[in-house]
């Protein structure tokens, strides 16, 4: 799993730097386009992903204490945050599409929509992984001595959070 996570981080890192260096040639365009973003939605999404990561930490702690059902509850809390993140993202993307903004509008929106959608798909995959782990935890499939699956799912989810921690200031905050 760690090789997979590192490969994902590398790809996101390349996209982040492509955005940052593309901006050096179009600062005014990037700054003007950034003003059209819903920063509040981005901030709420940051709170949601950070909180979901914390809930996953709690889930791992519970399974270490052999509390399988409690582990599942914390994972459900994390997935609720993840689901809300996805819903907010869909609203955000929908508003842009309604405003006639697409990837071909300009370079900024190409990165905003491309990076946003790429990260969105990772959150979806993370939800699928957490869902499978939750189901197994609910059925008592993990114990204090055997919880590798919970740790693996947690590592992937934290990676999704880590990427957003950079993506949010890069696209929504810095100008």
């Amino acid at each position: 799993m760690w090789f997979f996570i590192l490969a994902e981080l590398l790809v996101f890192g390349v996209f982040f730097l492509a955005y940052a260096f593309a901006r050096t040639r179009n600062v005014e365009l990037f700054n003007a386009s950034q003003l059209e973003l819903d920063q509040l939605s981005g901030a709420i999404n940051t709170v949601l992903l950070i909180s979901s990561s914390y809930f996953v930490v709690r889930a791992v702690d519970q399974i270490r204490h052999d509390r399988s059902r409690s582990c599942a509850y914390w994972l459900i809390a994390a997935m609720t945050c993840g689901g809300t993140f996805l819903a907010l993202k869909l609203v955000e993307f929908g508003a842009k599409i309604e405003a006639g903004i697409s990837m071909s509008t300009n370079t900024f929106f190409m990165f905003y929509l491309g990076l946003g959608f790429f990260h969105f798909m990772h959150v979806v995959l993370g939800m699928v992984i957490l869902g499978a782990v939750t189901l197994k935890a609910w059925k008592g499939g993990y114990s204090a001595t055997s919880y590798g699956g919970v740790e693996t799912g947690a590592a992937y989810w934290h990676m999704v959070d880590l990427v957003w921690i950079i993506l949010f200031p890069l696209i929504y905050v810095l100008h």
């Binding site: 590398l10 940052a20 901006r23 950079i166 810095l174």
Partner: peptide, 15 residues
């Protein structure tokens, strides 16, 4: 990875 990516972002924005 974190330090390099954030550092280069800082460099690009500063530039």
């Amino acid at each position: 990875w974190l330090v390099v990516v954030v550092g280069l972002i800082g460099f690009a924005f500063h530039m």
